[in-house]
Design a protein around this nucleic acid. Structure first.
Lengths: 153, 153
DNA sequence: TATTGTTATACTCTATAACTATA
DNA sequence: TATAGTTATAGAGTATAACAATA
C-alpha cells in the first residue's frame, strides 16, 4: 500500500455511511418480532458502557433532539429494559439506568449482532478487524459529548 | 496492540453507525441552503463511479426500495444534476446518468465534505486514514449488489 | 406472465415550538 | 430567568401494495 499518496479526504465518510446502512439493515433483517431495534441497541450500549446518566447526556452523545430521547426511553421503559428516576439532587433531572432485563436483552442482541458483523466483515482477517475497530474507537473517543471534535475547542 | 485477542465481534458495527451519524450530521450542518443532501451525494457518487445505470441497480446498491429511488431521482432531475432516459433496448428501463452540472455540484460538495471529514478524523494520522479507507473499501467492494456478502452465495 | 418503474399510503426517524416542573 | 424534560406537530426517510407500460 502506498502511504505517500495524499489523504483520501472526503472519500471515507461515504463508505462509513454505506457500511452503517448495510449493517443495521442486516441486523433488522435478522431480528425476530419483539427483538430490540438498532436505535434501542445504541442507547442501551451507551448506558451499559457509561453507567447511569441524565437524558440530556444521551441527547448530547447521539446528537439527538431531547424529544426523541423521550420517545426512545418510553419504549425502553415499557419493555422493562431501562428505568428513569428523579435525581434527588436536582428534581428536574431524570437518571436513566439499565435494568437486569436490559442487560440480558443486550447480551442476546449482541450475540445476534456478532453473527451479522462476522458476515459483513468476512473479507477482513481477524487482525484487520481489530485494526478497524481500534481506528474507529480512536475516532469516536476523541470526540466531545456534543458531537464535535474534542480538539476543536 | 494485542492481535491475539478474540475478534471484537459485534462491537465494530455500532461504532460505524455512530460515526456515520456524526459524519452526515456534520455535513448537513456545513450545508448552505440549496446544497445537496447527503443522500443525493451518495447516489451521485455512485453514478460518477460506475457510470450510467438503471434505477434498479441503484436500488440494489443501497438496499433502498424502488419507490424511494424514484423520489430521489425526481429531486436530482429537478435540480438538473442527473437525467433519466428510456433504454432503447428495453423500454421499461430508465438509464440514469450524471449531467455536467451534476459533476460540478459533486466536486463542490466533496470540497465541503473533505473539510468535515478532516475534522472528524483529526485524531488519526494520514497513514491511519489511508488504512481506514482501504479497510472500508475492502469490506464494501466484497459485497454483492443486493447488499449481502458476495462470498455468501 | 414477469419485470421496470410509478403512485398512493403508512410507518419510522428526527426536529421545532410551546409547555410543565423545578432551579 | 434558566434548565430538564415533556407534548404536539411537522417534515424527512423508508417500506408495502396496487398500478401502468413493456417484455
Amino acid at each position: 500500500m502506498d502511504w505517500s499518496e495524499p489523504r483520501p479526504a472526503g472519500h471515507t465518510l461515504p463508505l462509513v455511511s454505506h457500511l452503517a446502512r448495510a449493517g443495521w439493515r442486516a441486523l433488522d433483517a435478522s431480528a425476530k418480532p419483539g427483538d430490540m431495534t438498532h436505535r434501542q441497541l445504541l442507547v442501551l450500549t451507551l448506558l451499559r458502557d457509561r453507567g447511569r446518566m441524565a437524558q440530556q447526556q444521551i441527547r448530547d452523545v447521539f446528537g439527538l433532539d431531547a424529544s426523541n430521547v423521550v420517545g426512545l426511553l418510553n419504549e425502553l421503559e415499557e419493555r422493562g429494559l431501562a428505568v428513569r428516576r428523579r435525581d434527588p439532587a436536582d428534581r428536574r433531572r431524570h437518571i436513566v439506568e439499565l435494568t437486569d432485563v436490559g442487560v440480558a436483552a443486550l447480551e442476546e442482541t449482541y450475540a445476534r449482532l456478532a453473527i451479522v458483523e462476522d458476515d459483513i466483515l468476512r473479507s477482513l482477517t481477524n487482525e484487520d478487524r481489530h485494526h478497524l475497530h481500534h481506528l474507529l474507537l480512536r475516532v469516536m473517543t476523541s470526540r466531545s459529548p456534543d458531537g464535535s471534535s474534542a480538539e476543536a475547542r
